[in-house]
Design a protein around this nucleic acid. Structure first.
Length: 745
DNA sequence: CATACTAGG
């Protein structure tokens, strides 16, 4: 403990932060404060646990460069930081910043964003432990569905990038924050990309705000250049702590990567030292298939010569697996069969979930065929689809790195070195270039960005993608013809939903079915609820048939949720009906969150009396049309072919569709491109509803010529003959709720 | 006839 030598006032030794000048601290000051017997932020004595963790923290590479960090941080407003795996950047840098900003003395916060919820939660927990604090007090996290912060107390907050973007919508200057750290910026999620654009312009308005962009090596220069004020942003670099990984390539390109992958895994099992294997494949079916084949072949090897190879455990890994089965990747490899026998080996076969989201220790061998499923967006036909595509060099490096986490490893790339050098892109295209931007554009407009084309993107999306988004928002009446946000659009932007769904939810009280639309929207927002195990497909399909409403899949989803509720949200009931209890529970959670937002805006929660089910269902189907009138298909001929309205894509009803007939007109939730173009989650609608509830989109004077237009003209003629003088408009439900003062189309 | 990479609000 320090002695009072007369130069410092009495009692200063009891104040760990004595002499700290905000934004101008030195590493030795901070180190002393960290070792002080009192916690600088709570003034309580440090625990023994704290000192133990501190000793481990001091061994992190980033700790050795604390002085350099403070030199750069004090001098610059924006920093790009590169810290490889194992450098300790995610846990330590935000703490370093807290010692410099002293946010707790000024009512401010330090924020650190993460692309994933689990990361935000687990890092916050770790840092709370390191700082000797209770999680949710001074250190907290904020993710959708869970705000673990205490206003006025929390000064260090981990959060998802999407949450910070939401906050920016209501406080564009992000006044609460003294420093904002964007972690894992190299992943280039949509939210991180938009945040980088916002922060770059915010830096000019708020010279007191500091910004740190944390990224992997390859992208650093790009971010430095992007954040050029007069000179490029300075780089602060910290080495990682990983083991070397030896890379092997094939001599010739492999014609069948799945077959080659299986062969390689078995080769490793036969010939290489003990150590677990990680194989990357592209999807559920491929993974389950490879699992079976590897097991069979390994059994063969063992039968031929029991002493030649050890036992194996083949473990599939993809996101739709229940968490309990995902946990199996952390099981130990199986033991050898006899005391002297060859040791067992764990083989994990995974989608790219194991590339960033899940880390498996003990992997020594990585097999990388060089492919993954990636989202691609075609703005011309407004369709997002998944395609098996070659990965980028950055991805390949990330995959290889997974072999060197605990000891030196090997990575087998099932492509040639020449292809790696010449054919692979440097980086995976950022999400903003591969997505439908309807949602993002609405967020940007709400943020006050008027000229979307000239917004300072790190990578600008295709103008056509932006035009398509603006067009959709205009048809939904979220934007007026000048591109200004309407009151309806402003309300839509507050819902964590795609604009179509937000729109139909907001107008649903006019159709006396907001309870039902709320349920449908929640069910559409969660992963597929239908389970279909390979060996019980018939049983699963039969169970689904019992819950199916023949008028439309949207109504079936409503029915499933209601039955789940009638059965007291029972997981076993769900299981017995081949439904995912996890997805249903999630839907219930989403439903509550959306309900709270509806209450905030005084949107009535109503349901019509159940006397006339047809009428009840018709109202729901009409409300669906108000959101999804741009996703309509019209039957052509008798072969079950449909043409999407206006862009004339030939599509078929997805095999999972529960309609008992093939109606002339349907709305669909999703277009998917697998073995052929399908529309999925489909409901039967009446053409007069399209004309009635979406008159601008279905304005026949400007409608493209074709069979669809002629069918709509016939509908119009019939309606006019029938009602003679009673206009279609008059049959609309009476407007009542506050929301109905908004334009509706 | 024949069915799903990952993450986020």
């Amino acid at each position: 403990m320090s002695k009072n030598n007369g130069k410092t006032p009495a009692g200063a030794e009891k104040e760990p932060l004595f002499g700290f000048m905000p934004r101008n601290v030195k590493a030795d000051q901070v180190q002393k404060a960290m070792e002080h017997e009192l916690n600088p932020f709570t003034k309580k004595p440090h625990s023994a646990q704290y000192m133990k963790i501190l000793a481990a923290r001091k061994k992190l590479p980033v700790f050795a460069q604390m002085e350099e960090f403070y030199n750069v941080f004090t001098k610059h407003q924006i920093i790009v930081m590169v810290g490889e795996t194992g450098s300790g950047k995610t846990t330590q840098i935000p703490q370093f910043v807290a010692y410099s900003d002293l946010p707790h003395t000024r009512g401010k916060l330090v924020a650190c964003t993460q692309p994933r919820r689990v990361a935000a939660m687990s890092v916050a927990k770790r840092v709370a432990d390191e700082m000797d604090m209770q999680l949710g007090k001074q250190v907290g996290y904020s993710i959708r569905f869970e705000d673990m912060t205490e206003p006025g107390t929390t000064f260090l907050k981990y959060m998802t990038d999407g949450m910070l973007l939401r906050e920016a919508m209501n406080d564009p200057d992000l006044q609460r924050y003294s420093t904002i750290i964007l972690d894992e910026a190299h992943e280039r999620t949509l939210a991180t990309d938009i945040l980088m654009g916002l922060l770059k312009s915010l830096a000019k308005r708020r010279p007191d705000l500091k910004i740190i962009i944390m990224s992997a090596t390859l992208d650093a220069l790009k971010f430095q250049r992007y954040f050029t004020i007069d000179t490029p942003a300075p780089l602060f670099k910290v080495p990682g702590r990983t083991h070397p990984v030896e890379i092997f390539y094939t001599q010739e390109p492999e014609p069948d990567y799945v077959e080659a992958a299986i062969r390689t895994v078995l080769m490793i099992h036969r010939a290489e030292e003990p150590g677990d294997i990680l194989l990357f494949l592209t999807g559920e079916e491929e993974i389950e298939d490879a699992c079976r084949k590897i097991k069979l072949e390994a059994d063969d090897l063992q039968n031929q010569d029991p002493e030649s190879v050890g036992p194996i455990a083949c473990i599939p890994l993809y996101s739709s697996l229940p968490p309990q089965q995902q946990q199996r990747i952390f099981d130990a490899a199986p033991p050898s069969r006899s005391p002297d026998g060859p040791p067992g080996r764990k083989i994990v076969i995974s989608t790219n979930i194991a590339e960033t989201s899940l880390t498996i220790d003990g992997i020594v061998y990585v097999v990388d065929p060089g492919f993954s499923k990636q989202k691609v967006y075609n703005p011309r036909i407004r369709v997002e689809s998944l395609l098996v595509s070659p990965i980028s060099k950055a991805s390949a490096q990330q995959r290889a790195g997974r072999a060197g986490r605990t000891r030196p490893g090997k990575c087998f790339r099932l492509y040639t070195e020449k292809d790696f050098m010449k054919e692979l892109e440097e980086q995976t295209h950022p999400e903003i270039l591969r997505s439908n931007l309807a949602n993002t554009v609405l967020e940007l407009v709400k943020l006050g960005i008027k000229d979307l084309v000239r917004f300072d993107y790190v990578d600008a999306p295709a103008p056509e993608t932006l035009m398509r988004a603006l067009e959709l928002l205009n048809y939904l009446a979220a934007l007026d013809d000048e591109g200004n946000l309407t009151p309806l659009g402003s309300m839509m932007s507050e819902f964590p939903l795609d604009p179509q769904m937000a729109k139909m939810l907001i107008v649903s009280p006019e159709f006396k079915c907001s309870q039902e639309i709320l349920t449908i929207v929640a069910m559409l927002s969660v992963p597929n609820v239908w389970l279909r195990p390979n060996n019980q497909r018939k049983e699963a399909d039969a169970a689904k048939q019992l819950l199916t409403v023949p008028d439309g899949d949207h109504l079936t989803l409503l029915n499933v949720y209601n039955e789940y509720k009638n059965n007291e949200y029972d997981k076993n009931w769900a299981w017995n009906h081949y439904l995912s209890g996890r997805s249903l529970a999630q839907a219930d959670n989403v439903r509550s969150q959306l309900q709270r937002i509806m209450e905030r805006f005084d949107i009535d929660l109503v349901s019509m009396e159940y006397k006339d089910q047809t009428k009840h269902y018709n109202n729901i189907r009409q409300a669906l049309v108000c959101g999804f009138f741009m996703q309509v298909a019209h039957k052509e001929g008798e072969k079950g072919n449909y043409l999407t309205v206006k862009d004339n894509q030939v599509v078929a009803l997805h095999p999972s569709c529960g309609l008992d007939t093939q109606p002339d007109w349907v709305i669909f939730n999703e277009f998917v491109l697998t073995t052929r173009p399908y529309i999925r989650t489909v409901t039967d609608v009446k053409p007069q509803w399209l004309l009635e509830f979406a008159p601008t989109y279905f304005d026949l004077s400007s409608f493209p010529d074709g069979e669809t237009k002629r069918a709509l003209q016939r509908t119009l003629q019939k309606a006019n003959q029938k009602s003679r003088g009673t206009s279609v408009e008059d049959k609309r439900p009476k407007k009542k709720s506050k929301t109905s003062s908004e334009p509706r189309r």
